[in-house]
Structures are given as C-alpha cells and as structure tokens.
Amino acid sequence: MTAFAELHHRTEEALLLPNAWDHASATALAAQGFRAIGTTSLAVAAAVGLPDGSPATREHTLQLALTLGTEPFLLSVDAADGFSDDPERVAELARELSVVGAAGINLEDGLGSAALHARKIAAVKSAAPDLFVNARTDTYWLGDGDFADTLVRLDAYQQAGADGVFVPGLTDPARIAALVRHLDAPLNILYSSTGPTVPHLTDLGVRRVSLGSLLYRRALGAALDTVRDIRAGRSPRGAAPSYAEVEAWGNRRGISEASARA
C-alpha cells in the first residue's frame, strides 16, 4: 500500500485534503502541516480563461502536476473526467501524472455512462497501478441524489479497481453512514459548511474530506472584499501574508523557508 493510500485507511482521523491551484498555494498549505494536497480543476481552468473540465485544460493540469510533483507532500490531481471519453487517452494522462510524481488522481463521471467511467478507471489502474484512483460520482452534485443509482455506480467503480470513491454534494449523515456500511473502498465527502464537521464525518466512517474549490473561491472573495474596502476608504479586513512569505512559497524552497519564518 502506498503512503497516500495509507492516509485513507486511518480510523482515528479522516484525511483532510485541501485543494491548491498553484505552487504558492500548495506550499503554503504544506507549511501548515498537510501531508497531502489536491488540486482543483475549477481553479486551473479559471486561471487560463477556460470552463471547468474543458479538454484544453489537460496540459495546464499536467504542467501544475509537474510543478508540484517533486515537492515533499503527496499530490492528488483533480483531472475532471480525464479530459477525454477514450479510456486509453485517460490512461495516458494517468501515466504522465504518475511519472511527474503525483500520488493520486480524481476522476468524475459527470453523470455520464457508468460503464464508460468504469472502463476509464480500469485503464488507469492498468497504466499506473500505484496511482490512487478516487472515483467520483455526481449523483448528488449534478443529479437529484438518487441513492440507488449512487450505489450502482460506486459498485461498478470499485469493481473496476477504484481505490476510493467520492460523492460530492452528499451531506445527510444517515445516507453517508449507509454508504460507508455498503462500501469496501474508503469514502470521500466534499466538505460543506451546512453539512457534518470533519470530526463528525470521521465518526460516520468517512476516510477523506476534500475542500474542492472552496479555498480558491474564498481567496477570490477575500481579494474582492479587500478592494471594496480600499475603494470605500476603509482599512482592509483580514490577514495577508507578507511579501517575503509569498516569495518563499512561490519558489522550490518554499516549504522550508516559510517554516523558518513561522
């Protein structure tokens, strides 16, 4: 079992996976003690003016993984639907991510064909056996929360070789507990301010809690709040890292330098 997989099998504490969007955000999070960090496809796409999940973001996703893959934290890459309907093309992406140092990949079904998504998972596991595949279903995120369909899809993804499964949008504790009892693979839930806390999710049996695009969206929100305050003649609210801290996070020595300044 890989080090990243082991983090999904702890019973005392769910893996809280923050999602970064560039080198500075990733190393800043690592400096806070996070052993594993994910990327967020929304931020990767938004940064280059593309819609989330667009096939055109494939190379940008790879470039970010290349930037982060050699850093001293475990990296999981949000690859949307694999940026292709061709399982072999998705497998090639997984192989490239593994080569540059990624420990995991997140693949979403977008409520499309479960059979096709299962074939993608199987192809990825064949091409990059050590890459942790987190198979996401969007039955609650894009659909109406069909629990029976959720079970059918997750069963197919487990059988195809998924190492973990992800159900964003699910916040009901009873349904979460029922899924945990049904599954063999670790369950990943997307954190929601209106849902269970991380300790509660751990008690329910959830093994991974992702933040998705939340940190990126809050960073944009903080930037807008700041400029509104300045325009209105107010002092900006909230804390801001120093120039030197951001400079440290932005280079390849960022973690050690940031830690030394703390």
Rank of each mutant, 00 (worst) to 15 (best):
H9F: 13
R10D: 11
T11R: 15
E12V: 12
E13R: 14
L15W: 11
L15P: 05
L16A: 14
L16K: 01
L17A: 08
W21V: 06
A24Q: 13
S25C: 02
A28H: 07
L29K: 03
L29C: 02
A30T: 01
A31Q: 04
Q32E: 12
Q32F: 11
Q32W: 04
G33A: 02
G33Y: 12
F34P: 01
F34H: 12
R35G: 11
I37S: 00
G38Q: 01
T39Q: 09
T39C: 00
L42N: 10
A43W: 00
A45V: 02
G49H: 10
L50A: 14
L50D: 02
P51L: 10
P55R: 09
P55E: 05
P55F: 09
R58E: 14
E59Y: 02
H60P: 00
Q63L: 14
A65P: 05
A65W: 12
T67S: 13
T67V: 09
T70Q: 15
L74V: 02
S76D: 12
V77I: 13
V77M: 09
V77C: 03
D81V: 00
G82A: 03
F83H: 09
E88F: 05
R89D: 15
E92V: 05
L93H: 14
A94V: 08
E96M: 09
S98K: 11
V100C: 13
G101D: 06
A102N: 08
A102G: 04
N106H: 14
N106Q: 08
N106P: 01
N106R: 11
E108M: 13
D109Q: 08
G110H: 06
G110D: 00
L111W: 00
A114I: 12
A118Q: 06
R119C: 04
I121W: 07
I121K: 03
V124A: 10
